[in-house]
Amino acid sequence: MARNKHPEVTINRILDTSWELFMEKGYEATTIQDIVNALGDLSKGAIYHHFKSKEEILDAVTDRFYKEQGLSDVMTQNPTNKTGLERLQQCMIISLESPFNHAVYHMVPDLLKNARMLVMQVKTSMEDTAPAIQVLIEQGVADGSIHTQYPKELAETLILLSNLWITPALFTKTREEFYEKIKFLDTLLSSQGLNLINEAVKKAIDVFADAVYSEE
């Protein structure tokens, strides 16, 4: 078999096709064979060469989206005209207002019934997202916009509560419950010197709630 000289092209085709199928059939109902059939010219082996599982494909789709939307840049670049708090708020707004994220919440199964995906969510939250948030909090401490002695612990708390405790894919099934948890999160973060939820973030929270709880 000839060696693929452009693996990034193949990877993007797999991600594009998988996302279309996830949206059309639902994540749970889509199989690797469905992806193979839709691609037409790739085998299961070719897909598994790049991705170990369907969950890993969804994770890669999400990572690519964040890069395209500039969220990764906000988290990694350090503009001199923004404080750490402002950068963190910008990250929250991008994530909350993202149509991609809204679609994912409607598409993915109940994470309590999908242990593998739940473990991936926890792993990504703790190993990737929390350290990036910690950098922003540490910048905020340095520039005076955030006041905490525990940047690492605060970053981990914010991400775990946001990505697990508050997420509609796990425990928060109604709009009312969602807003009550947001109020508690705001109180908790403020008590630790992180006044994250300003008016712009509140508007983004409303956008998210309207999209995710639209069927209530």
Rank of each mutant, 00 (worst) to 15 (best):
T129D: 03
M107H: 06
E24R: 08
T187I: 14
N78S: 11
K202C: 08
D110E: 10
Q69F: 01
E215N: 00
E138A: 08
E97H: 04
V74G: 00
H147K: 13
I159S: 07
Q77E: 10
E177H: 12
M1C: 08
T129N: 03
L164M: 15
K82M: 13
Q134G: 02
T167Q: 15
Y48P: 04
D34T: 07
N101H: 05
V9L: 10
S18C: 09
N198V: 12
D16C: 09
H102R: 05
I94G: 06
H50I: 05
E68A: 01
S214Y: 01
Y105M: 03
L170K: 04
Q134Y: 02
M107C: 13
K25P: 03
A132E: 12
S125N: 09
D16I: 09
D143K: 11
T62D: 04
T187W: 15
I205L: 15
V74A: 01
L194D: 05
I182P: 12
L161C: 11
L136V: 08
G193H: 04
L188Y: 14
H50P: 03
K54E: 00
Y105F: 09
P109K: 03
G84R: 11
R175G: 05
Q69A: 08
K152C: 06
E153D: 05
T80Y: 14
K202P: 02
K67V: 04
A142C: 10
N78P: 01
H106N: 05
T30F: 02
T167K: 15
T157Q: 11
